[in-house]
């Protein structure tokens, strides 16, 4: 049952991701990206990472996608024709394919040769909201608190750069 769910979600994620890249209409691409995010969230649920799943939907499928679509509408992007192929591009894609192919062969070799570390079973509650929360307030207290400075910096920066006219004191 779990495996079946994984295959459905995994296939969904891959198909929508490919669709997102190849579709010409930016809005359709964005919607496909939302589907990818949802599928990924589903996979996180299967892995018992409920917190991650919730965050995935809230932040990515929610906030970030709204931003994407907002920008697409503001810029008034339309589907455009493919730019003409040039020799440079052909050469670049050829080298790219060579490189990716070589890496893939190597990676498959790694899997075949079972050189990956042996998986150790995780504790039953790994990744649940409770454990994540506990870790954040014990082991990772400093990173958690320091994030506030990071956010403050980002807010100050956003205000600084976006403010249209800075009033003279």
């Amino acid at each position: 049952m779990e495996l079946l769910a994984f295959y459905i979600l995994g296939a969904g994620a891959v198909v929508t991701a490919v669709m997102m890249v190849i579709h010409r209409n930016p809005i359709v691409s964005a919607l496909n990206l939302i589907f990818t995010m949802f599928c990924l969230a589903g996979i996180f649920v299967l892995l018992n990472a409920h917190f991650m799943a919730a965050i995935q939907i809230l932040v990515y499928a929610g906030a970030i996608m709204v931003l994407f679509i907002f920008v697409i509408m503001l810029l008034n992007l339309r589907g455009e024709d493919w730019p003409p192929l040039t020799w440079k591009k052909l050469l670049a894609s050829f080298i790219g394919i060579l490189f990716v192919g070589y890496s893939l062969i190597k990676i498959i070799g790694i899997f075949r040769g079972s050189m990956l570390p042996v998986a150790t079973p995780l504790p039953e509650d790994f990744g649940t909201t409770r454990i994540v929360g506990e870790k954040l307030f014990t082991d990772f207290l400093l990173p958690f608190e320091v994030t506030s400075i990071l956010l403050l910096t980002a807010i100050v920066g956003a205000v600084m750069l976006a403010k249209m006219k800075i009033d003279k004191g």
Binding site: P143, V146, T147, L150, T153, A154, V156, G157
Partner: peptide, 22 residues
């Protein structure tokens, strides 16, 4: 810890992005 290092790096970098465009 890599997480601490990463957060430090981000705080530094984001400040610098903004300062570069000041």
């Amino acid at each position: 810890d890599l997480i601490t290092i990463f957060l430090g790096l981000e705080i530094m970098s984001i400040s610098l992005y903004i300062l570069a465009g000041f």
